[in-house]
């Protein structure tokens, strides 16, 4: 899994990535110097839970991907089967072209199978 993340981080504009369980535990990470793994995992997990809670009454809660674009950075959370793939991106990079790389990484994580902690 670390290899998958490392390859994803080689894409221009990706500042770091990590795989987390649904409850926010870090499975593997490859983050840049300024990013703390536990903090990013906690933020991503909290966002996932809140979004799902808001969408559940309307049957929209099984989402494949969540993208947050802010003025100084971007965050993508992709469903990767047993884990969620969290990708932190630079603000100057378009999300569109990187989505293919994210999808590919998520698919490879999905194929890795079950996670036991």
């Amino acid at each position: 899994m670390r290899r998958v993340l490392k390859q994803l981080n080689d894409v221009v504009g990706v500042k770091g990535s990590l795989a987390i369980t649904w409850d926010g535990m870090v499975v593997a990470s490859h983050l840049g110097r300024n990013l703390e793994e536990e903090f990013v995992a906690a933020m991503a997990s909290a966002a996932l839970h809140s979004m799902r809670r808001a969408l559940a009454p309307h049957a929209l809660h099984t989402f494949n991907r969540l993208t947050l674009v802010a003025s100084h950075g971007k965050l993508v959370l992709a469903d990767a089967g047993p884990a969620y793939l969290v990708v932190v991106m630079d603000r100057n990079v378009e999300v569109g072209p990187v989505q293919i790389e994210i999808e590919s990484a998520a698919m490879r994580i999905r194929q890795l199978g079950e996670i036991r902690i």
Partner: peptide, 10 residues
């Protein structure tokens, strides 16, 4: 990351 500009959920 600054102010939210856009969020997308698929």
């Amino acid at each position: 990351a600054g102010a939210l500009v856009r969020a997308e959920i698929e």
